[in-house]
Amino acid sequence: MNTERQEQEGVSPERVMDGVQEVDWISSSTKRIRAQHHAIKLFGFLNPLRETPVCIVTENELEWLFSQTEQSLGASPAFDPEKVTILVFCDNCRPNPAVISVCRKHNIALARTRLTGNDILDYLQLHLSRVIAARGIQHGVFLSVMNVGVLIIGASGVGKSEVAMDLVQRGHQLVADDAVETYRGEQGGLIGECPDALKGYIEIRGLGIINILKMFGPSAVLDSCRLQLVIDLIDATNSEIRKVDRLAPSLKDWEMLGVKVPCLTMLVAPGRNLSVLVEAAVRDHLLRVDGTDSSADFIRAHTRSLETGAEERGAEKQDEHTCIGDDL
């Protein structure tokens, strides 16, 4: 079941800045920053004409800010304090009493740091989208197979964890078993992570809960990975295997948080070594991304050979006619 969880409650100012060392909070705020439409910028240097939820103040912005009085800041037609959630003073700049008073009045968090404005900008660029991204929990096993993030889904008991175990044994990395936390990362891709409580563990029926991290070492576990391929395991009777299209992979689109990922249906049946098939599917996916479609290539080559065969036969027939003509 595909579930989506929007961060309805939003993110607190403290959480937005929690990766920055040496932050002094002068005032806090109960406002929250939410994932908004992409067109709305979430942060930037303080600009009285275009407020962002996170405003960075450096010496360049101080001149304008300090030229304002408490009344003009709160009532200026150009600057709307309601749109601002955090004001970050960088370069060790200090807010003046008018700014502090406006922030308290309009519920704006006020932070000070020794870092430069550009440092904060870099930090926000990397971390803000991650922190406020819409997140969802997906049922399935998530692995990095040859550096491709593969999510294995399917009904419970179909053998997802067993395939994962086999793939780890073959040198691939486990990200999360059973519950995968996904969010929309930079460049619009889906990133999968393991919920903290489950990190490094896998549950196998009959063996209980296994510590993969201890059993196989740190190289067998990965913190997060970009999701590129979904494999849907379906327990199939033999009659269903016969119904499968033999010429093309059973690919469809799988969607989560508005991002589409190719999904391959893989039938589970005795005699099918799933970990080998998953590896093959990943290799084929990499080829397809590179522009090579094995199935289509084969069919094209085959059609061409049929055509040339027909032409040659046509030519032979013509030859026969001309031979007969020569005899006469």
Partner: peptide, 24 residues
């Protein structure tokens, strides 16, 4: 039936022990 449990917007498969444990 497919069964899922939801806690504060986090939804997990009730047939998966790791998922249910994650709900805490």
């Amino acid at each position: 039936s497919s069964i899922s449990l939801d806690k504060e917007g986090q939804s997990v498969d009730a047939k998966s022990i790791m998922g249910v444990l994650m709900l805490a």
